[in-house]
């Protein structure tokens, strides 16, 4: 009788302590003004009203939305394309490719940031050296120009995530029964048409999982913009997670930071629950 509860209890104890309690604390804190010392002062919904008028927060929301869009509409399709290429019949060295493309996920974000900062240094970096040698001119200001800085973060996100997502798609493609393709071929479907009529519907659950995972990951992006561009130039690459970090740990506005975190939470939670429901994943049995 009690056995199943005993098995799941350790998880729920930790879950309550380190997830539920913090969320409740965040809710309480978001209604206060607190610099980290003394007693928090109750201010009602003022933090949320301030957020609604805070242009930095708007910028952060817009940037995080951009990161989400890039992840879902660029990184995910690239991963599917890569998986499709790796799924090619009789491909040699498939494991070499699969493993190599996964390596960025194994590396620490700080390592990735250091490597890219080295490569993309405006004056002396390898990439600009090559560009200058090939095309002349002054090279590209990868970190210092607002638009290029956004692209740099996006490219690093692509580089880091694509191989990870590819393994899910590849496993899904390998599980599609072969006779479905043969049937489509008999019906005269070409490669493109059987991709849309056989492949996509068959891998739908995995696509759903990958889309939700990338959405959640991108919405809370912190390491790449913090480490590579430090949110800059100005606030061109500032993400919501960075906004929360700065409010709390650079300006000691703990209540304000908690409020910003909750806004992120509500949006991410609502959208991913909606996606889960639409795409029907995450049910026991």
């Amino acid at each position: 009788m009690w056995a199943p509860y005993a098995f799941i209890a350790p998880f729920y104890v930790l879950y309550v302590l380190f997830m539920i309690v913090p969320i409740l604390v965040a809710c309480g804190l978001s209604l206060t003004e607190w610099v980290g010392l003394g007693t928090p002062k109750f201010v009602g919904l003022r933090n949320f009203l301030d957020l609604a008028r805070d242009t930095s927060f708007h910028t952060a929301l817009a940037n995080s939305t951009l990161y989400v869009l890039v992840s879902v509409f660029v990184v995910v399709p690239c991963a599917l394309l890569l998986a499709q290429a790796l799924h090619t019949r009789g491909l040699r060295a498939r494991d070499l490719f699969r493993v190599t493309f996964f390596v960025p996920m194994v590396l620490s974000p700080i390592v990735i940031a250091l490597v890219y900062s080295l490569l993309l240094d405006t004056q002396y970096g390898l990439v600009n050296s090559v560009l200058k040698a090939l095309f002349g001119g002054g090279g590209v200001d990868w970190i210092g120009d607002p638009d290029w800085a956004k692209s740099t973060v996006a490219v690093v996100v692509l580089w880091r995530w694509v191989g990870y997502l590819t393994i899910f798609f590849l496993a899904a493609l390998q599980a599609v029964p072969r006779d479905l393709y043969e049937a489509a071929e008999l019906d005269g479907a070409g490669a493109i048409r059987s991709f849309f009529t056989v492949t996509l519907p068959s891998i739908q659950p995995v696509t759903a999982f990958v889309v939700v995972t990338s959405f959640i990951g991108a919405a809370q992006l912190f390491d790449e913009p913090y480490l590579i561009t430090n949110g800059g130039p100005g606030e061109a690459t500032l993400s919501v997670a960075m906004f929360v970090y700065r409010a709390a740990f650079q300006r000691q506005q703990f209540g304000y930071a908690a409020a910003a975190g909750l806004v992120l939470f509500v949006v991410v939670f609502a959208v991913s629950q909606l996606l889960n429901r639409l795409l029907a994943i995450g049910r026991a049995e």
Partner: peptide, 26 residues
């Protein structure tokens, strides 16, 4: 079981930035 599983699963969509500040304080 269904409810507990759902609660567990939904925690996948809690961004770390939300609990960063309260967890630090706790």
């Amino acid at each position: 079981k269904r409810v507990l599983f759902g609660v567990m699963f939904s925690s996948l969509s809690v961004p770390f930035a939300v609990i960063l500040v309260p967890l630090f304080i706790l």
